[in-house]
Design a protein around this nucleic acid. Structure first.
Lengths: 337, 337
DNA sequence: CTGAAAGCGCTAACAA
DNA sequence: TTGTTAGCGCTTTCAG
């Protein structure tokens, strides 16, 4: 591997000039620049990032901690982050916490050693531990807010409210929110939003759970729905899928007897029978944005801000007017946040 | 952030000794070791990896390139790799190629700059480009073989053969293999294995495809099956899921009218009705093993070897004797590779 | 606009 | 067993 010194020699300039040609082309005479570039090209020069990191203090690496990759929610997130990193000539160090707070914080510590900053997606750690982490290195949260720490939030709570509104517009009044996991920040947000929206629309919200956000839990939940309920909003797609299965198995037809919607969107929801009304969530964008924010924080360009990314109701076949209602189109459907 | 010099001063020793205390504890007097460790602890010392990399030539980073994260096959792979990296005090740089050869090779180039080696999972690039890559830096392939390059292969071809055998043992003779994507290495392997096994068992193998490995393609394929066929092995779970759906919709009952199996295993296959016979594939293990191999290659401990990880038939409800056969248990079922 | 020189924090001979 | 010394490859003052 050729070094900067090689390039400098080949181009007949000093190391300093060669370095400038790469870092600050505008500080170098055009002809010199040309020569250095040619030399670098000829030698296939690739700067040694470790050496660069040592002098500049920037490693060019960004840590990304996700709870899991098995949940398809996180794939586009990582992809978006990876692209954004790539575009800015950064690299992505990945860590999978498996929803374990201890593992998460250990990973954060390890990654920080080597990265310029950290993106933590839906972290499970305590506010205090995240604050501590942030005091150490630039930290951007995704789908979690802790005080004034910079965060990118997918606004599924507004989306959940929009879903409730969507149901109310159809004429539903007795609505159930099927909760996600106990202690989940996202679930708490969605639940609150659903409650407030139901109230605002003159409906009543029944809450089931907390539940594991799984297919099986959804199947079980289908048997627990209060009989008065005509519309259901599930914390996530897995629960919705389970609910759909459970309801169908119990002879309850969706959407004729009951309307069903999910507060996120797995592709699978579009392929069920009927397809399930859900939320369009810009996950990949969130990943990219988190990286962009992190870079800004690192550069000191940006104060601590939370960006909420809007989500939108994706009306599909699973929501309709409640039984015994003349069919009509809901007003206000299709617009979230 | 405190440096090694700080620790040395605090412990009253030279930098060299402090460094040795961390790197080669056995070369340092017990009492000195103790003092250095205490000092490091007190100062919260964390070695600067960039500096270390500069002197040792090892960055402590391993690149991992996957085609996508959306396919749940790759999640456990990444998890396994990440764990193995963690255990050996390495970090994982992730790249997502999106099945694009150009992007893949660009990523490989970028990651190499900074990593001690590369794991490429099911790469789409040409043999030549992979060879070139390998000549550059340690490279371990997963689920792809190129000449004598080190590789970890999930032995789904033996598994596919075992699946065919499983069907034959039930009495099936007319069997279809529903192919995966054109040009796929894994598909070619599985197809060949299926063909040979069918022949060995006195059956006949019909080949459908190549097909996109998607649910929809599976649905479509259900209509293309030759009428004589009583058993089907699909390239992967998505195709199998689609086939199941398409067959059921067409009034063909699985497994009464037709047996169905998949040459890999998504969790979803266990939850369908009937659950689909599939292959137990040690994906996480493959990820971990690839990292271990990479480290060995890097250390020069190991020559170029391909490790095949066995897969096993997971018999489920979707396979049974062909129509018009007295039910009986197949012999030899349940054992792959 | 360019060059000389001084490190960044660490490890690894080589001596002692 | 420990200390001294010399870099690893790069960026960046500071002069010229």
């Amino acid at each position: 591997m050729s070094t900067l010194a090689d390039v400098a020699r080949e181009a007949g300039v000093s190391k300093a000039t060669a370095s400038r040609a790469m870092m600050r082309p505008d500080m170098v005479a055009a002809s010199t620049l040309e020569r250095v570039r040619a030399a670098a090209e000829r030698l296939g020069f690739q700067p040694n990032r470790a050496a660069r990191a040592l002098t500049t203090g920037r490693t060019g690496m960004l840590g990304l901690i996700v709870p899991t990759l098995a949940n398809p929610f996180f794939s586009p997130l990582v992809l978006g982050a990876q692209r954004a990193a790539e575009e800015t000539d950064n690299h992505l160090l990945i860590g999978v916490s498996e929803y374990d707070a201890a593992r998460e914080s250990a990973l954060a510590g390890r990654l920080c050693e080597q990265a310029d900053g950290l993106v933590m997606v839906a972290p499970v750690g305590s506010d205090a531990s995240l604050r501590a982490q942030a005091s150490h290195r630039p930290l951007v949260l995704v789908d979690r807010r802790v005080g004034r720490l910079p965060a990118v939030v997918l606004d599924t709570s507004a989306g959940t409210a929009a879903l409730v509104q969507h149901l109310c517009a159809f004429g539903h009044r007795e609505i159930a929110y099927v909760s996600g996991p106990a202690g989940s920040w996202a679930d708490a947000e969605r639940r609150t939003a659903a409650t407030e929206q139901a109230e605002a629309d003159g409906g009543r919200l029944h809450i089931l759970g907390p539940l594991d956000p799984t297919f099986d839990a959804g199947v079980a939940a289908a048997r627990q729905l209060p009989p008065s309920v005509t519309g259901v909003v599930a914390y996530n797609s897995y629960l919705a899928l389970g609910l759909l299965h459970g309801l169908t198995a119990a002879g309850i037809h969706v959407p004729r007897d009951l309307s069903l919607a999910a507060a996120d969107d797995l592709n699978a929801l579009g392929a069920t029978d009927p397809p399930v009304t859900a939320l369009d969530v810009p996950v990949e964008e969130a990943g990219a944005l988190a990286v962009a924010r992190l870079l800004e924080v690192h550069a000191g360009t940006r104060r601590t801000v939370t960006t909420r990314l809007p989500t939108h109701v994706l009306p599909r076949g699973s929501t309709a007017p409640p039984p015994g209602t003349a069919a009509r189109t809901p007003h206000g459907a299709g617009h979230g946040a």
